[in-house]
Design a protein around this nucleic acid. Structure first.
Lengths: 332, 332
DNA sequence: TTGTAGGCGTTATCAC
DNA sequence: GTGATAACGCCTACAA
C-alpha cells in the first residue's frame, strides 16, 4: 500500500493523500475524510525510509556503545534504555551498534551509521577522543551532530558530556582520609581507557596531604571477583600496612572484600573499601559497598538532551561536565 | 556525494558507478579503476536508505525489548549485545525499541519498526503471545519474519524460541526434594508475564510426590531485595515450617537470604534457597546462590540464528525450546 | 562495455 | 482545493 494506491482508490492524486497523512491544510473536508477512511481500511503504513530520503532526515540516531560481553558490563548499559526512551519521546529511534574498543572497529561503526544517514550520533561507553576517531568523524560525519559521553573532540559538530573522574577519585581519597585512613591503594581494571585519568585523580588527592598519606596503584586488574581477590592477595603481601582501598569497578571491590574477610581483616574496621560505579552489586555484598557514583543515567540523559537541542535548533552546550558523588554504605 | 556526482567527475554514467560500488561485472578495467579512485578521493559514502528503497531491503532488524528501568533488569539485556554482534557479522543492524509491557505500547513499537521497513523483527524480553500482538503482526508485519523469544504465535511468519520454565521449575522442585526438602515455597515477582507458567511447573513438581511434598506460592513479590525480605518475613509467619524456597528472580532470592540470615536461620542448613536467572548477583552473595539458568544468551543467539536462516533462505525451525539448567552453588 | 529510462515511496513546488 | 512534475539516491532491465 503506497500513497498512489490509496490515491487511486479515492479517485484523487497522491499529493492529496500525502497532505492528509501529514495533516497539512489544502484538502477539502470530504476528500480528507474519504482518504482517512481508506488509509485505515487498507492498513496503510507510511514508509519512513522513503520519507527520509525525500526529507533528508531519517529520524534515527546512531548509538555506538562498546561493551565487552562477559565482562560485567551490564551496569554500563543501564543508561542505554533511558536514552532510548527519551529519544523515542521525541520521535527518534536508535540504531544500536556495539563496537569493540579498537580504533578500527569504532571507525567502521561510524561509517556504518553514516551510511544509514542518521540524524545524530551518540558515542556512549568507554570511547576515547583519539585522532583516528576524530578523522573518521570529519570524513564520514562532517555535518552530523555527534555527542560523546566521557570524551571530547574539538570539532564544530561534536559535543561532549564528561564525567570528572579525576575530581571523583580525588574526592574518594579525601573521603578515606577523613575516615582516618592514610595508606591507600587503587585498583584499576585492565582495558580501561580512563586509567590515566583515574590514576591522576588518586595521585592528586594524595599529593595534597604532602607526605601524610601514601598511595600505591595496581593497574591491569582483571575485571572480575577473582581479579579483585588476586590483587588483594598481592597487595597484602607487598603492602600489608594498607588501610584504604579504592577499586575502579564495584565487582573488583567485592572480590577484594571477599578476600579480606577470609583473611580475617575487618572491613571497615581495619581497612576501608570503596568501589566505583554504584552498581546494583554494591547493594548486595555485606557490608554494602561504598561506591563512587559515575552518574551513568544522568550523563546518558544529558547526552540525549544535548543532541535534541541541536536537532531542534535550540542553543546547545558544546561541553558539559558532571561530577561524581559518593554513595556511602557500609565498607567505609 | 552521490553516484551521479562521481559519474560526472569520471565522465561516465551513474550505472557504471553503481556497478563498481556493487562489485558487479560489466565495466572495463580502466573505468573501474578511475571510478574507484574518485570514490575514495571524495569519500563517497553509499546511502543505505536509498539502496534499501530500491532493493526493498533495509538490512536492519527491529529489536523489541521490554525493560523496566530501575527494576534490576540489567540481566535480561545481557543477551542483546550478543545478538547485535551476531547480526552485525551478517550485515544487519539493530533498530532498538524499548517497549513497555502493555499491549498498546507493544503494538506501537511494532508499527514503528514496520514503518521503518525492517527486514526482520526479534521480540526479546518478557513479551507474551497475546491476541493483540498477534493482530498487530498480522496487520503491520504480515510478510516480515518475526522471532519471539519466550513465546509463540501460530502465524506463518512467526518463529519462536522458548525456554521451558515449567520444566525448569519442576526440575527445581525435584532438586530440592533430592536435597531432603519437603515444605516448599515459590516467590514470583509482580508483573511477570510468565507467572502462570512458573507456577504450573512448581505445582507439577510437587504433585509428583503425592502429598509427601507441600508447596505454597507467593505472587506479586516486588522485584527487589526489599521485596524478598518482606515476603520472607511473611512466609516465616505464615509457614514457619518451610524448608525450601525458590524465587523467580535472583535479586529477590538474595533479599530472602539476607532476611533468613538475620533471623539466625542457616542457609542451606535449615532452609535451601534457589534463585532464577543465574545472574552475576548469584556469584556475589554469601553463600553463593544456586540458581535456575534461563539461558539468556543461548536463547537470544538462537533467535538470531533462526532469523538469519529465514532471511538467507535456509530452512528454519518454526519452534525450538531450550531447557533450563541448575547452576548449583552454596544455598542448596 | 556502457548508457538510458524507469522505478522504489515520499515530499515539495508550482500551476490550475 | 487539487493535481502534475520533479526531486531524494540508488538499482536494474533493456538498449546501444
Amino acid at each position: 500500500m503506497t500513497i498512489y494506491d490509496i490515491a487511486k482508490l479515492a479517485g484523487v492524486s497522491a499529493s492529496s493523500v500525502s497532505r492528509v497523512i501529514n495533516n497539512k491544510p489544502g484538502v477539502g473536508k470530504e476528500t480528507r475524510e474519504k482518504i482517512l477512511a481508506l488509509l485505515d481500511q487498507y492498513h496503510y503504513s507510511l514508509d519512513e525510509t522513503a520519507r527520509g530520503l525525500s526529507k533528508k532526515s531519517s529520524k534515527t540516531i546512531g548509538v555506538l556503545i562498546s561493551v565487552m560481553p562477559g565482562l560485567h558490563s551490564e551496569h554500563s548499559i543501564k543508561g542505554l534504555f533511558y536514552m532510548e526512551g527519551e529519544l523515542a519521546k521525541h520521535g527518534y529511534h536508535c540504531l544500536l551498534v556495539n563496537t569493540g574498543t579498537t580504533d578500527g572497529e569504532v571507525v567502521e561503526a561510524i561509517s556504518t551509521v553514516a551510511g544509514r544517514r542518521v540524524d545524530g550520533v551518540i558515542l556512549a561507553g568507554a570511547f576515547y577522543a583519539t585522532n583516528v576517531v576524530r578523522r573518521a568523524i570529519e570524513q564520514y560525519l562532517p555535518q552530523c551532530p555527534v555527542v560523546m559521553i566521557n570524551g571530547f573532540l574539538d570539532l564544530p559538530n561534536v559535543y561532549g558530556v564528561g564525567i570528572d573522574e579525576t575530581q571523583g577519585l580525588e574526592m574518594g581519597v579525601d573521603f578515606l582520609v577523613r575516615k582516618g585512613r592514610s595508606k591507600l591503594a587503587l585498583f584499576i581494571d585492565s582495558r580501561r581507557l580512563s586509567a590515566g585519568i583515574i590514576r591522576r585523580g588518586f595521585e592528586n588527592g594524595i599529593a595534597k596531604y604532602r607526605g601524610a598519606v601514601t598511595g600505591i596503584v595496581y593497574e591491569d586488574v582483571e575485571r572480575s571477583l577473582q581479579g579483585g581477590r588476586d590483587t588483594a592477595a598481592l597487595l597484602l603481601r607487598e603492602h600489608p600496612e594498607t588501610d584504604g582501598i579504592i577499586c575502579a569497578v564495584d565487582m573488583i571491590a567485592i572480590g577484594v572484600l571477599d578476600y579480606l574477610q577470609e583473611m580475617g581483616i575487618d572491613v571497615p574496621g581495619q581497612v576501608s573499601l570503596m568501589g566505583e560505579d554504584n552498581s546494583n552489586y554494591a547493594e548486595i555484598c555485606k557490608p554494602k559497598l561504598t561506591s563512587l557514583d559515575t552518574k551513568m543515567v544522568e550523563s546518558n540523559l544529558m547526552a540525549v538532551r544535548t543532541l535534541l537541542d541541536v536537532l531542534e535548533q535550540r542553543p546547545p552546550c558544546h561541553r558539559v561536565m558532571l561530577y561524581m558523588e559518593i554513595a556511602e554504605r557500609g565498607t567505609t
